[in-house]
Design a protein around this nucleic acid. Structure first.
Lengths: 202, 202
DNA sequence: CGAAGAAACATACAGACTGTTTGTAGATTC
DNA sequence: GAATCTACAAACAGTCTGTATGTTTCTTCG
């Protein structure tokens, strides 16, 4: 009845079906709201197959998040064009990030459920393994040698937080241009002025 | 055996015991990792009492989050001193926020679990009802009339995202001073320059 | 005061879900 | 082509959630 498939082919197809079904359900209903019976049924399998390929529900979720983060990184890289200035490059990257994150339930998956389910540390690792380093590189290029690398790392963290919040806000309101403009305002003023501490305080 | 207690006293004490137990457990083990049997036992009650006072587990969680957000707002307000400049006031507020958020498992509760369990919209509402408006006021004071209010609202959103990320980073690394300094750098440069778009682009 | 009623709580129950174990069909190895 | 291993299915045990029902404690009012 069935064409003869190799074991590795069978595994790959099953995993893909599971991840595809899980992506939809986790996006729609979150981690806690998605049950493994529903998940297996949507993938056209049984829970037995699920637990054969993944240790538990959390491992499925982690696989979904990692695949999604990789896909976002890929889309950004794809849409990257060389810019005239480092700040322009940062802004182009930000726009690409915002666009990529509007897909399906990515915001929920990567920025809301992910940190809660997998933990901040795991999400940080996933972020760094996919595209998170480019932001730091971009800021280093923008600041040049005027700012020590530890400080740049902190700026990268803060800017990344702004990017995430902007992506969420755009998803909720659609006000992409307004947020892009505001991000630009922050980045431009930051890079132009640098941390000279014009207040003269401690 | 028992002293005669009024019904409203009984209710209040029970609710307080439940919320106190829930605060500890939700902080330690998250929403999904905490069961109502454990919760009731820790509060010295049964699940019957819990479900008498709260609709479901989620309502308990929401009550915990709201109480915690209110307490954070209270601590910030308590530690607020008048500053010389609007930017100084913002930085003082930020430091107070960072300090308040280091308590117990507040970071996890308010910044990680809360958004995932209650949703971003609900968390935004809670934030606005407690202390979230002051940041916007502070930025308005800092910018004066040079920036339209809608833009300031967006800046407030982005700055609030930085504050949250900084609070998390301080909790993870203890590098409070470094992050406070970086936040100061961003705020000072932003306010001093304003969104003049010195790139001359669209 | 004291019975009727309501509120606060405890116990018992039904359904669902998770992870594990056991069983079977299909693929690989020698 | 028999032995073995992988992929998957089905059944099981334990836990959790929310509800329904029962009991105790307080309140109300004649």
């Amino acid at each position: 009845m069935q064409a003869r498939r190799s074991n590795s082919d069978r595994s790959q197809e099953t995993r893909e079906a599971l991840i595809a079904a899980a992506r939809v359900l986790f996006c729609e209903k979150g981690f806690g709201g998605t049950g493994t019976p529903e998940l297996a049924e949507r993938a056209g399998l049984t829970r037995g197959a699920l637990y054969h390929h993944y240790k538990d529900k959390l491992a499925v979720f982690q696989a979904v998040v990692e695949a999604e983060a990789a896909e976002v990184a890929r889309e950004i890289e794809e849409n990257t064009v060389e810019a005239e200035t480092p700040v322009q490059a940062l802004l182009q990257g930000a726009k690409a990030y915002f666009r990529a994150m509007q897909q399906a339930g990515r915001l929920r998956l990567l920025l809301v459920e992910g940190p809660a389910v997998l933990g901040l540390e795991a999400m940080r690792r996933i972020d760094l393994e996919t595209g998170g380093l480019e932001l730091r590189r971009g800021l280093e290029a923008a600041f040049g040698d005027t700012v020590p690398p530890e400080t740049i790392a902190i700026y990268a963290d803060l800017v990344s937080a702004m990017f995430d919040r902007a992506a969420l806000a755009i998803g909720a309101s659609g006000a992409a241009q307004a947020y892009e403009k505001a991000i630009e305002g922050v980045l431009v003023s930051l890079v132009n002025q640098g941390p000279d501490d014009p207040t003269g305080r401690d």
